[in-house]
Amino acid sequence: MNVTRRHMLLLLPAAAIAWKHVLAGTPEAAPNYKLSEHWWSMLIDLPKCIGCGNCVRACQTENDVPDGYFRTWVERYHVTDYDIENPHVDSPDGGKKGFPPSKEEGGKNFFVPKLCNHCADSPCTQVCPVGATFISPDGVVLVDKKYCLGCRYCVQACPYGCRFINPATETAEKCTLCYHRITKGLTTACCESCPTGARQLADLKNPNDPIHEFLKTHSIQVLKPYMATHAKVFYNGLDGSVR
């Protein structure tokens, strides 16, 4: 049995309860969700990413992300044989409409989906002057849009470019790891719509989560490890040229 299927089964009973509440129009009352029992993260299995842009579109649909801003996006890398320090990267409209045919022949070509790394030592929450962005007890970096000043300091502090100011609310915005879904037993919109299973939601506190086996048996890397942010988005097969 493969990872995705097993993972779906793990979520199944909770999701079934959740769904009843969603149908009844009271999703907030959904499952018996305990903050202390989860520590969310995500696994990106790069050799499976086909750059279709489904995740970017799904995220926009699920979270009303304004045009031109991205909670998740996909980059395309082109690296020539001996020059890993100078990759050619593009991400037309964040990969939302997929990618045009690659112009550059030769070398290495691959896609890299990006999203908030939900760092355990997040530089963005560190700098928030008022406590409007924070790490939730279940390990998700969130923004309280009713409390955010819109000072943009967190946007500056994120090493990965994952934050932006929503022009409608004038507050900071970012990936919530679909907090409204994962707390109801569903997976994130990007994972749900990924056709190849390149993105998988993982709960590090769940001993039955296949993530543990996967992390043990694969070469795993996080983005910009030298930033020491304790990023929780784990990449399998990440090339050294990716930044």
């Binding site: 031109g68 801003y69 991205f70 996006w73 980059e75 050619h88 990267v89 593009d90 991400s91 409209d93 964040g94 990006k114 943009r152 946007v155 500056q156 990965y160 470019g161 994952c162 934050r163 932006f164 100011i165």
Partner: peptide
């Protein structure tokens, strides 16, 4: 060149 897509707009 390449900017992360959220970086195109200046914040300050």
């Amino acid at each position: 060149g390449f900017m992360y897509p959220n970086e195109i707009e200046l914040q300050w």
